[in-house]
């Protein structure tokens, strides 16, 4: 089912070493730093889930706020309005997100949307979702919804505040990154990359374009929705402007692109670097000169993208190989 590469990653001491060290961080970090890291992990999870569609299949979806919003707002509303357990809410929201994702992928195929049309259509869906959330009292309307205090009752989808939320996000981010590795080494990963690089040629060698696009979008939407539910539990406040508007998708796309599209660890790297950078800049400079932190952040992103259009990860990989071999590069990264 899955190629050797996946099992090699699973067996890598690096993976488990990094996870073990990370899992110990709540014991040494102060609550502000822990919050920064938890936030970074939320975006690692989101950017990695988006990568399945945006990176591997090359479909720049801006619909993902729809799935985050469904995961966050719907599960919260179901709990507050109907008393439905949030674990069940997570599953219901994920199922609905998956169906929405499949529908969007089908529309894309049915009407043979090009790349730009796909971006615009997904953006339109996301805007529609935002309008529905802000206009519908059931989902909290414009003022949002407030979850009950987190008492650490696991059965009620409560993880006991800072430490628990961090571990949940660490686990979720790790699983989603590993799903990326698995897909990349499975037939689906080959199909998606062939579709991304040349749809017509993919069809000619037997790739069922519709089926695999739907599969990719569904997996991505379900994972994104699950992150949305966990994220809102951490935030406690279901804010429609944060969780259900396309701005959050733009951030995800940015992190994934800066880190390295289509590579299993690329989006994770982008989020781990940029989320803390953005937060620290805002903390240090936000009060002094209004807008200065955004400016510096923007300059950093532009410089990175210009310097390494394929993202930081390919750059890091080359540096790593260089360090290990201390010899000339055998095969420069392909640029075409």
């Amino acid at each position: 089912m899955i190629g050797k590469g996946f099992y090699q990653t699973l067996a890598s001491p690096w993976l488990w070493g990094v996870l073990a060290v990370a899992a110990c961080l709540p014991l040494v970090l102060n609550s502000y730093h822990l919050h920064l890291l938890t936030l970074a992990l939320v975006y690692v999870a989101l950017a990695s889930a988006w990568n399945i569609v945006g990176g591997m299949a090359g479909q720049i979806s801006l619909a993902h706020s729809l799935f985050i919003g469904t995961g966050a707002m719907l599960s919260t509303a179901l709990l507050l309005k109907f008393g439905i357990n949030m674990w069940a809410g997570l599953v219901i929201a994920a199922a609905i997100s998956g169906a929405l994702g499949a529908m969007i992928a089908w529309i894309d195929f049915r009407f043979q949307l090009g790349h730009l049309s796909f971006v615009l259509i997904t953006l339109a869906f996301a805007e529609m979702g935002a309008i529905i959330v802000e206009g519908w009292e059931f989902l909290g309307g414009a003022s949002g919804l407030l979850l009950p205090r987190d008492t650490g009752d696991l059965l009620a989808f409560q993880f006991g505040g800072g430490h628990g939320a961090f571990w949940v996000m660490l686990g979720l981010a790790a699983i989603i990154v590993l799903v990326n590795v698995a897909i990349l080494n499975a037939p689906l990963g080959y199909y998606l990359r062939t579709i991304r690089d040349n749809e017509k040629a993919a069809q000619a060698i037997g790739v069922n374009v519709l089926r695999h696009k739907i599969t990719a979008m569904t997996i991505s939407a379900v994972l994104t929705s699950i992150v949305g539910t966990c994220y809102v539990r951490y935030l406690t406040f279901a804010d429609p402007y944060l969780l259900a508007t396309p701005t959050i998708t733009i951030e995800i796309v940015l992190f994934a692109t800066v880190g390295g599209l289509g590579r299993p660890f690329g989006p994770a790297l982008g989020a781990l670097l940029l989320v803390p950078l953005g937060e620290v800049l805002r903390g240090q400079l936000g009060g002094a000169v209004p807008g200065l932190h955004y400016f510096i952040y923007g300059v950093v992103v532009i410089v990175v993208i210009l310097a390494t259009p394929r993202g930081l990860l390919p750059l890091a990989e080359r540096a790593w190989r260089g360090l290990r071999r201390r010899g000339p590069e055998p095969r420069p990264a392909s640029v075409s």
Partner: peptide, 27 residues
């Protein structure tokens, strides 16, 4: 195809592997 098809970000092995997946398991 008469007009040779290109793949921007895959290796020749990956492209031909995709073709081979038509009738064979991944490994």
């Amino acid at each position: 195809f008469q007009l040779v098809q290109t793949f921007a970000d895959m290796t020749t092995l990956e492209v031909v592997t995709t073709a081979a997946l038509t009738r064979r398991p991944i490994r």
